[in-house]
Design a protein around this nucleic acid. Structure first.
Length: 196
DNA sequence: AGCACGATGCTCT
DNA sequence: GAGCATCGTGCTT
């Protein structure tokens, strides 16, 4: 059984809110320790430009945020809380710093390895999914539109807008309004079709 | 089921 | 030196 072609660069080179919504239902793939691991994206958040005070790019272009200013369709992987890796997909045109944080997946391929790495616990959480798939800083900047990068995203089932829930982004405790409350977090529940 | 807290190290001021 | 796009545990309702 062959994989589908990855989502193309044009997919990412659009408004970040559109990309965030449309990444729901897509299939995140990672080649890790020789095993193909994957999962359906069920939650994502948008971070949009230097004006967005919840976005890392609020401080301008730095060593850490440089990839956000690069071409869309690449991975922005950063380290936080002393132990966690976060995976983002770069969006919008090159030169404009924006990204979608992948916050949760439902595992599809490599269930055994994922269960081992997660000690049987779930993969709903930005640091949980990177741990499950073995994603770390070595993948920062890789091209998500190429299978050969070892980290890529394929199209999936179309998720109807009606089952998508939108709300404020998580963890922006000291971010000022209106950014703290912008409804830029999107999620859905594929198993239950809309409720949990 | 809900909160408080500690772990742990990088980034930017 | 402060803060962090978090998680798991342990304790209280």
């Amino acid at each position: 059984m062959r994989s589908n072609a990855p989502l193309p660069r044009e997919f990412y080179q659009r408004p970040t809110l559109v990309v965030a919504r449309e990444l729901l239902g897509a299939k995140l793939n990672c080649l890790s320790d020789g095993v193909n691991l994957s999962g359906i994206i069920t939650e994502a958040e948008a971070y949009i430009g230097e004006e967005d005070l919840g976005c890392h790019a609020k401080a301008g272009k730095t060593k850490r945020t440089a990839v956000m200013y690069g071409p869309p369709g690449h991975a922005y992987v950063y380290f936080t809380y002393g132990m966690h890796w976060m995976l983002n997909a770069i969006t919008e045109r090159e030169g404009f710093p924006a990204a979608v944080l992948i916050r949760a997946i439902d595992p599809i391929d490599g269930l055994d390895l994922i269960a081992t790495r997660r000690a049987g616990r779930d993969t709903a959480g930005p640091a949980k999914l990177t741990q499950a798939l073995g994603i770390d800083g070595t993948l920062n900047g890789v091209d998500l539109t190429l299978c050969s990068s070892g980290l890529w995203i394929e199209p999936g089932e179309k998720v109807d807008d009606i089952v998508i829930l939108a709300g404020p982004r998580i963890g922006l405790n000291t971010v000022p309004e209106p950014w703290k409350s912008m409804p830029w977090r999107f999620r859905y529940y594929p198993r239950t079709q809309g409720r949990q």
